[in-house]
Design a protein around this nucleic acid. Structure first.
Lengths: 152, 152
DNA sequence: GAGTGTAATGCAACTTAGTTGCATGTGTCA
DNA sequence: TGACACATGCAACTAAGTTGCATTACACTC
């Protein structure tokens, strides 16, 4: 992955913030934990447990899948990553939490995922839903499926 | 399920249309096939394979799960139902295809699901996405999670 | 109404994704 | 350096869905 100096610098800061958040709450900074957080930062995309395991393999010969599942649960529980699911996919995915609120563009051909930020998002819609149905929206998930520029 | 005469009449018409679509293409109208379509019409909500199996049980003592999975695949393949997945759920769900384009309100407390139709939907957003990223949106999925009127 | 071909069904065994219990290992702090 | 509790590894398990293959039953013809 090619990174500019700025991006690298930002990533280091985010990594430090996450790691000190973990230690600050009395949890340990283990080899696996650090590696998993770095993988999420490095990829910047929603990853499944299988993705994380594959990414860990080169350096750390045999990391148990149970450990990875538990690490993902730990990071989610502490608000560092959050679960998302894509349409027609059976696997859980996670991405770093705490970034800007965004949605995903998923290419049907190459399966590439891009983030997208919508102007004004859906606040207006959610207000209208409350008015017309009495349903109070607390969260939403939105994903777009189609063909990316490279595949057209 | 309480139904008005109008609703019952409409359901009958929809059922007939679906069934004649199936026979018209040279497929058989079996006991299970008819029952599954009727269940979707009757419930009017996204159902999982387990839901369908449970709904079949009372009348049809032992319908094999393989049959149900294959029936759902058949109905999806022929555009009669379509797959949807809800956030944080691992199971596939299906709902009748061909109705108005809509989204779902999912109550976190009672798990009830309501349909919602958005004014103008997301056409405007999709046009903007094409302009700014070159990604051509062909489909989207949107669901709202929150608290329904009854649970507040 | 009987015969026939093929779609549909049932059963068992399998796959994939994720989880649980329990014994063992290792970071961190005193 | 030692000790405690968090973290890890292994094996066995669960849930959801799939596959292969033998059997059944629609729907069509006669």
């Amino acid at each position: 992955m090619q990174l500019s100096c700025i991006t690298l610098f930002t990533m280091e800061r985010v990594l430090d913030r996450i790691l000190s958040e973990i230690t600050g709450r009395g949890f340990r900074l283990t080899r696996v934990r650090r590696a998993v957080v770095e993988i999420f930062l490095d990829r910047g995309l929603p990853l499944s447990a299988a993705d994380v395991i594959a990414a860990l393999r080169p350096g750390n010969a045999s990391i148990n899948k149970t450990t990875v599942y538990r690490e993902l649960a730990f990071l989610e529980e502490h608000g560092i990553i959050k679960e998302i699911r894509f349409l027609h996919e059976r696997v859980k995915r996670y991405e770093l939490a705490g970034g800007d609120h965004h949605h995903h563009l998923i290419c049907m051909k190459c399966r590439k995922v891009e983030d997208i930020v919508l102007e004004g998002d859906l606040e207006e819609e959610e207000r209208r839903i409350l008015e017309s149905t009495g349903f109070r929206v607390l969260d939403h998930s939105l994903e777009f499926v189609g063909i990316c520029q490279g595949c057209r």
